[in-house]
Every structure is written in C-alpha cells, then in structure tokens.
Amino acid sequence: MSANKSGGKLSLQTKRKLQPYLYIAPVMILLLLAFGYPLIKSIVMSFQDYKLSRLDKVSWNNFKNYIAMFTDKNFLLLLKNSVIYVVVAVLCQFLLGLGLALGLNGKFKGRGIYQSIVFLPWAFSAFVVGLLFRWSFNGEYGVVNDVLLKLGIIKDKISWLGTPGLSLAVVIMAMIWIGIPFFGINILAALQSVPEDIYEAADMDGCGTFRKFFTLTLPYIKPTIIMTILLRTIWIFNSFDLVVIVTEGGPANYSQTLPSYMYTQAFSSYDFGLAGAFGVLLMVILTLYALIFLKITQYDKAGDF
C-alpha cells in the first residue's frame, strides 16, 4: 500500500529514514536532560551573580566572574598544579599500567588471583583511598615516615602534608595508585586481541623482543592507549575528591587544583556563578587538549593495518 494513498501517513521511505533517530531518541533525550541542560546552565550561570543562598538576587554581571577568576592571586598556582597533577599522574599510570598488562599477558600459575588483587584499587572509592593516604602520610603517626625512619632513609620525620610540593606529591601518588588498574585492564584486553601469528612470523624473520614490541605490539594497541590516555586525562583533570580529602588543598593552596578550587568556591560561598566560570574554563582547556591530542596522535589512522 502506498503511503500517499493513505492520506497523512508517512511513506515507507520516510519511516525508514526516521527509524534510526527514533531508536536513539530515548538516549538522546536522557543525554540532553542529564548533560545538555547542566552544560548550558553552567555557561549561563558563569555570566551571573548566582549565589545559592540569594536566589532572589540572581542577575547578569557580564564578565565579572571571569575577571575574578583570572585575577585571583592563586590562579597561576592552580593552573601549574593542575598541569603537574595531570601530566605526572597520567604518565605514571600509563607506564605502570602498561608494565602490569605486559606482565599479566603471559601465562603463569596463580595469574587469576594476582590479577584480581592488582585490579582492586580501581574498585575502592576515592574517599577510602584519600583517607588511607592521609593517615599513611601523617607527619607524626603515619606509617610512611615510620618505615622510612626504620630503613634509615630519613633521619627526621617529614611533614608530607604540611610542606609545599610534598602535599601535592602525596595526592599524585594516591591518584597514580588508584588509576593503574584502569590502564592495566584496558591495555591487557588490547594485548590479548593481538593475533599470535604475527609474532610467529616475526620470530621466523629473527625479530628481537624490543623490535617486536615497538613495531608490532604498540601499533596494535595504539587506539586503546590513545583512548585510555584521553579519558584518564579528562577524568584526572576534573577530579577533586582526592585533593579535598587528603590535603584540602593546603598548605596555602599548594596542592589545590582548578577543579578542587572550583569545588571550594562553589560550596564555601555557594557562588555558583564563579564556579561556573571555572567550569567553562575547564571545558575550554579540555576541548583544546582533546583536539590537539587526537591530531598529534593521529587517532583517526591508528589501528589501520
């Protein structure tokens, strides 16, 4: 039966065209509600005097929040801390995660149990990990100082959480510890999908271990590595929980990052306008990062053999 003959009904061709959109409509609606609305709202708020406790006095303030953000005396320190935090944490997580995956890729007795144990940190909440590190690195009673003293590595207790530089290092260590399994799991999955026969062919051609790794293994797992690094960078850059729990950004903001500062601003004075400005800045930074990263790593060509 022709659609035209049935008056207002859609033609089969139109229905077929619409079909995919209808399938994805529920998800798109949910995404728009859950992400699209907050995204637009946070951009709007960043141009407003928006205090949660003074909702009767919400008004446009042009670029006041952005001026306050860029002229904040801590801004450069926060930016520097954020970059150090992300670069060191992602790099260490990647290298250690890669080592872990290569180790677990071989067959050995008890691999299943060992695998379950080393992946455990990923299952812990950041709150638990934060408290664990906070107490372990306590300057007076912490187990870290105790061990280092007993091993004769240090002579006096170190004030890990009270010394600029060290306090951020503790947060970074916590972040590395919690994130290694994510890299490990993903890279291990990629390694297990590399066909065995190419290694056999390489062996016949007399390739050494390093050459096989760099010319065969790495290209095969490159898409996974790129995607994992991209995701972890975004997550770590946005994360503030460990900073808040381990050091509260102290001392004197030396371990504060942009998101943790944003959190402090948002929930100490309920100034969602200023927090919105920080949120927009984070979005711009991460969008630029993602674009440049994908371009440099040639993600669109990765995995093409």
Binding site: L31, A34, F35, G36, Y37, P38, L39, I40, K41, S42, I43, M45, Y50, L52, L55, V58, M227, L230, I234, W235, N238, P259, M262, A266, F272, A275, G276, F278, G279, V280, L282, M283, L286, T287, A290, L291, L294, Y299, D300
Partner: peptide, 29 residues
C-alpha cells in the same frame, strides 16, 4: 564523526560537573 563524538562526550563530562550544581539551584528557584 568518531573524533567529534569524543569531543562532545568530553565537553559534556566537563560541564556536567559544574552544571549539576546549578541544576539543583534551578529547582531551587
């Protein structure tokens, strides 16, 4: 398309962070 979708997902992930707070505020209006 793949690259664009990744970028969109990234952007959403970032702004959802602050926007969620505002969402609460909105209902609070």
């Amino acid at each position: 398309k793949r690259v664009v979708s990744i970028l969109l997902a990234s952007a959403m992930a970032v702004t959802a962070f602050t926007g969620c707070g505002g969402g609460g505020g909105s209902s609070a209006a």
